[in-house]
Nucleic acid binder design. Structure first.
Ligand SMILES: [Mn+2]
Ligand SMILES: [Mn+2]
Ligand SMILES: [Zn+2]
Ligand SMILES: [Zn+2]
Lengths: 137, 137
DNA sequence: CTGTTTATGCAACATTGTTGCATTTTTAGT
DNA sequence: ACTAAAAATGCAACAATGTTGCATAAACAG
């Protein structure tokens, strides 16, 4: 689905930066850091990017996949609606290339997590990502 | 064990700020945010606090329990050695009081996590903490 | 006590988070 | 297509944190 249609579906106004952010995150297999987004979207003011990321996160179109040392990584959400981000997956920070990816987890683990009495649960891990593991490291 | 002895045990030099940080984190049942530590240790330069937190983390005496929107929470480590932080527990950010606490997890969940091929795994959650849940909220 | 090693304090700068407000853009209604 | 209302953007401004270099002070081994 095109970014315009997605925005419309979520009752959000269609603006250039929102389309650009959604396009960028949709096109990337890995999560993108704030600084990378900033560079890619340098045509826009960084405050606008800041608020765009807030808006898209609040409405469940994207999510913050990882945060460390003040560096945040964002990824496209699939299946999230409104405030209800249900990330039944894991966020892996590659110890080799530094990339961040969203990974599916086992059904068993999902069940375990679902039993915990919390509103929101996130798992993050460090280790070789799929690409780096193949090439050895 | 006293903070001095702990430092000696880890082959770290005994300095005022290291003792102060260890004392503060050992005394608190919840993790302490950077800003709280900063305020409590305002006698020291913030660069020194920054480097102290790095050093104590690197040697496994403390760990970063939670990070969000550039705010980091630190907690005393028990059973961690050197770079090998093995946090078989969960970090809960209270949706009511905002406090962060380290919680034990079930053996079953530990086993599930242990099967994942990663060097380090962290779980964080949001929801009412033990104190706030009692009082209702 | 003394020399060596290491930590600290300070300056400096980069990055990010965050808010207010005037201006521009988007949208819905005509 | 035109217009008014609602919302988003750009810009300024400031706070907080991350990060490094370097001179000075403190810790430690002998
Ligand atoms: Mn994700
Ligand atoms: Mn912990
Ligand atoms: Zn990688
Ligand atoms: Zn609480």
């Amino acid at each position: 689905m095109t970014s315009e249609k997605t925005l419309k579906q979520f009752n959000l106004r269609i603006t250039k930066i929102r389309i650009a952010v959604l396009d960028a995150l949709s096109a990337s297999p890995a999560a993108l850091s704030y600084s990378v987004l900033q560079d890619a979207l340098s045509a826009f003011d960084r405050t606008t990017l800041y608020r765009t990321l807030l808006t898209l996160t609040d409405h469940g179109l994207i999510h913050k996949a990882y945060e460390e040392n003040g560096e945040s990584y964002y990824a496209r959400c699939f299946g999230c609606t409104g405030q209800d981000h249900h990330h039944e997956h894991l966020h892996l920070k590659c110890s080799s290339c530094g990339g961040v990816e969203c990974l599916e987890i086992s059904e068993e683990l999902k069940l375990n997590l679902a039993q915990l009495p919390f509103e929101e649960i996130n798992i993050s891990a460090k280790g070789p990502c799929s690409s780096c593991a193949i090439q050895g490291g």
